[in-house]
Nucleic acid binder design. Structure first.
Lengths: 399, 399
DNA sequence: CTTTTAAGTCAATTGTCTTGACTAATTTGT
DNA sequence: ACAAATTAGTCAAGACAATTGACTTAAAAG
């Protein structure tokens, strides 16, 4: 009789949901198209001139947009374009990797204002958390000093680290596995330690977030970022939003077995970890990025040999991504040095045939995205900005 | 000066968008939980009692819900549950396959009312379209005859056929490829021929739509249907909605090469096409479904041999799906006879290790979904219903 | 210099959800 | 038996945000 099964339902919405959505739509349009007049915005968003005017006034009061020079476009009253104010919002991005952590501050339009990094001591989160918290505080302090209003316009802290999350692993001994961090209540700890909204994603997802906000995926609804870093992963932009999966582990393509037998994965042959091993260099060397970049640029034969083998598996990865996700484009990105990434893309040509091969393509099947050690941190920082300002279904719902 | 670049933006919303969303949320809650009282609905959707009352009155007037027996649940006034009226809406589903076409009529809650099928003549859409149109008209006529109000409550025609779509293929000679149909302007032709809203999806997506509406994926936000039919595919429920990809070809896992070399795909070993070839039976035999079902149920050694080989590749497919999509569960479904599907699932145990293997799972990693020749048609029919009544981002947008 | 066209504002209106007070029906406790 | 507590549901007024149509402003075209 006492029927206490929980009732499952989507949340309803109300006027505030409507209004919030329309604000986001306008901010998104300005980010995507640059400065636009109220009339342009009204046409693009299908809202009335009056509604747009009201929202623009609000946004201007909130310091998120400003007017620009009026422009004359033929007959009729000249229009006044409005553009986003970079200082309208800030976010901090944090990357936690095996032996290093990086923090970054970005503004509303994705400009990077501050970069700081620190070495992570061995010992996992117990010894690492204080270092990480201090790094975030350093960035925050400098931001506060440089922009008076920054503190109250700080929308959150985005964290990125290698996945997968929530899987029971038997890796306590291997310093290159992140298991202790992945099992640690990082969100809660950082949230308590900073008082900020904290979100967590894996490094491939972070790269995809960055590419969507300011990179090759800007304005695309369907794009996959093939992330080549210490591991391999895919960041998924599906239907205009980052897709996380049920437990934030979607896109872990580097862990996919190449076939039913064997037990090999793409990570075995195409990750930077495999490159370091192939070259016999120490992954912890502080100048490793520059070193690899130089040797790749100089067409070092050892590197070329690795590239040949890696390209085979990466070519298959692109084929798989295209077959399974049907994206508009695939973007190669991550912590690989630019020279290496460029050569990888060259070596991957010609790509394997796939459904992506059709008449009427406008975007290349594979293109180069951000390849720098800070790409993941940038993406981590982009997440809170996108969360606060991008149009999304969940943003219209109540509570 | 004449700056005519198109402006890209998401559409805004208004009061009607709000109202439409809330209606959908309520209908969805009733489908998901069965009959609920106004007070229950208000709690579940976070709307106020009054708002729910207003919407319920509207829905009752529209003939979409009716009140049920009042129930006493402890202290307080007894509540009056409201449930969906099956006759509140109807849709027709159409499956087009190599040599057969099936049409089906369903109601708002997914009951199948009418089933009809016809053989498709060789010659592709030129000779096939009249047959298909006639079949749809037959179903429509019978529906009209059985339910007086059906015609004006018919929300659309959903079509499913094998993908991929829009790819240039060189297959004119092979009667088992659907190229001519896939290149034909089917949507436009059927829309003109019936006057209905027509949508198109591939057969795996259709199965996923059916599983989500009335099957194993009911109420799940992240589920992948591994479709085993004449071909192999995956229907993707991602973030609560069917995911189609940029060109409706997402999930074509059967076309994924098993590795960079070789050129083999899962379809080569695990599709019903491969089974028919293995057994040396004619795929066009009218009783093939019953035949395979019987032989599988009797543990025919030829069938068991095929199952052993197919299970290897399907096991890998499940591993890949779990690694790449991170779903709550994987559902095996499609046109495979029940006895065969059951044995396949058994033969696939134990599954390959993957990220889906973690403490605290509630759903099985792999489960059996709909396996009957009508599953695709059911899914095709479910699409227009879902389009008309499910809460979705695009439903709140203007125009 | 009048007409046409487009940007943008003003004031009144409309549609939808919210609020707070109310009624109705049932169980619990004395 | 009866008052108190609790829950379902309604009523009527109010609040909020988008809409409408008339108006003002400013430029180009004829």
């Amino acid at each position: 009789m006492n029927d206490k099964r929980p009732i499952r339902a989507t949340s309803g919405t109300n006027h505030e949901g409507t209004s919030a959505h329309n604000r986001r739509v306008i901010i998104d349009a300005l980010r995507l198209n640059g400065a636009l007049s109220r009339a342009d915005l009204a046409r693009a968003t299908r809202l009335t001139k009056q509604t747009v005017s009201n929202i623009m006034e609000e946004l201007e009061n909130d310091g998120l947009v400003t007017s620009r020079e009026t422009v004359r476009r033929g007959r009729g009253q000249p229009s006044t374009p409005y553009g986003l104010v970079p200082e309208g919002a800030f976010a901090i991005g944090l990357q936690i990797d095996r032996h290093i952590t990086r923090a970054i501050a970005v503004d509303l339009v994705g400009n990077v204002l501050i970069r700081k990094e620190a070495n992570l001591p061995a010992g996992g989160p117990v010894t690492g958390t204080p270092v990480v918290l201090q790094l975030v505080e350093d960035v925050r302090a400098e931001l506060k000093q440089r922009v008076a209003q920054a503190e109250k316009r700080l929308v959150g802290l985005g964290v990125a680290m290698p996945g997968p999350f929530g899987i029971d692993q038997d890796d306590a001994e291997n310093p290159w596995m992140m298991g202790p961090w992945q099992r640690f209540p990082l969100l809660e700890t950082l949230s308590a330690g900073t008082g900020l909204n904290v979100t967590l994603q894996n490094d491939a997802a972070a790269c995809a977030t960055a590419e969507r906000m300011v990179g090759a995926a800007h304005g695309l609804d369907h794009a996959v970022c093939l992330y080549v870093g210490y591991g391999i992963g895919a960041g998924l932009i599906l239907g205009g939003e980052l897709y996380r999966g049920a437990r934030s582990n979607a896109g872990e393509i580097g862990m996919a077995l190449l076939s039913a037998g064997g037990g090999k994965t793409v990570e075995h042959s195409a990750s930077l970890a495999s490159l370091y091993e192939h070259l016999g260099v120490d992954p912890m060397a502080p100048d490793i990025y520059a070193l690899i970049d130089e040797r790749a640029a100089a067409n070092d034969p050892d590197i070329l040999a690795w590239i040949e083998k890696a390209a085979v598996d990466l070519r298959w990865s692109v084929h798989l991504i295209e077959t399974v996700f049907d994206p508009q484009t695939v973007i190669l990105c991550g912590g690989a040095p630019a020279a290496l990434a460029t050569r990888l893309i060259e070596a991957m040509q010609p790509l394997l045939p796939s459904n992506a091969d059709h008449a009427g393509r406008v975007l290349p099947r594979l293109q180069l995205g951000m390849t720098d050690p800070w790409a993941v941190a940038r993406g981590a920082a982009a997440e809170p900005i996108g969360h606060a300002f991008d149009p999304r279904f969940s943003a219209i719902l109540k509570s």
